[in-house]
Design a protein around this nucleic acid. Structure first.
Lengths: 171, 171
DNA sequence: TTCCGCATGTAATGGGTTACATGATTAG
DNA sequence: CTAATCATGTAACCCATTACATGCGGAA
């Protein structure tokens, strides 16, 4: 149930239309909380119905600009402070459990692929990190913290995959 | 669409009933791919319908023991070698993006909480790791690799959260 | 005989993905 | 005028969660 909170969070910063928000989802939130266009417009309608956001301005082409309301901000704070993050699923890890059904060289190939993917992601995130001019605004501070998480995760995954390949018995 | 593959993977080892499989999901797969009872029985029926598994034995209380078929094993191998892991969502990280709406001490409290959770998980996984007598069977090798991933992830999360708290500006 | 564990199933609801459908505005 | 971009919406389908529902078998 976090798409709604992602939307509320983005609207803290400034009012925006569904179209605007979609672009943010496709860029900065793509690796954290992907969402589709369908989902997004539907959720915005529901949020407006429940009064957490309002249409603050109508533009050309039926554009609706949404603004966060006080109750929306309260809901966001509630989510942040009072609720627990939920369980996640890991597709990558699930596969590891069953690598035994493959031949050892195939299992190693899988792990090599994971190492390569992680290395690539790490490079990508590092490039983003270096390209951005981090000022000391809130979004900057927390955006940077999130990006650092991504980098540390990618680095860990790469090291793990490289170690793991050595654990696969020669076949 | 990975629940089906998790089931196929578990049935490689030995035939089992829905009830048996549920227990495995609630223990060893709980942190990797949680599934509910409803979902599991439904999926088993679908898998049987499509011939990837068969009812190999009927026991008391309507117990049905399922066995993996050749096409089921082929499907599992196909999933492992030919398909890409999908995007994941991170609730924890999403929250980080929006910590700016909280007072600094609340933001730090959130990060402290995450550090504590990670430390707890790390200890738990370490205890499991040490308690298990790892032999050199396939399940043992890959189970150990998966567990190692969990431990590295938890350690990384703890370090990151501790670092992150220092980045939050004093308020 | 009573309770616990074994064992399976269905229904309702909500979130997520893909595809379809439509149309207005603006830049070249 | 034409193409790209802006902009929103609906429908069908699948997966996941929660709750409800039922009943057998074995142990004390």
């Amino acid at each position: 149930m976090s798409l709604r909170h992602a939307l509320l969070g983005l609207l803290v910063d400034r009012p925006a239309s569904g179209y605007d928000l979609l672009k943010t989802f496709d860029t900065s939130l793509a690796n954290v909380w992907p969402a589709t266009q369908s989902q997004l417009y539907g959720e915005l309608s529901k949020l407006a119905d429940s009064g957490l956001i309002t249409v603050s301005e109508q533009g050309p082409r039926g554009r609706k600009e949404y603004t966060l309301t006080d109750s929306g901000l309260a809901e966001l704070r509630h989510w942040l402070t009072e609720t627990e993050p939920q369980r996640t699923r890991s597709d990558v890890l699930l596969r590891v459990f069953f690598l035994g059904v493959l031949a050892p060289d195939q299992a190693r190939a899988y792990l090599d692929g994971q190492a390569a993917r992680a290395a690539e992601l790490h490079a990508e995130l590092k490039a983003i990190d270096e390209a951005i001019d981090w000022d000391d605004g809130d979004l900057s501070v927390y955006g940077h913290i999130a990006l650092e998480y991504g980098q540390r995760l990618a680095a860990m995954q790469q090291e793990w995959a490289q170690w793991a390949r050595t654990q696969v018995k020669p076949g």
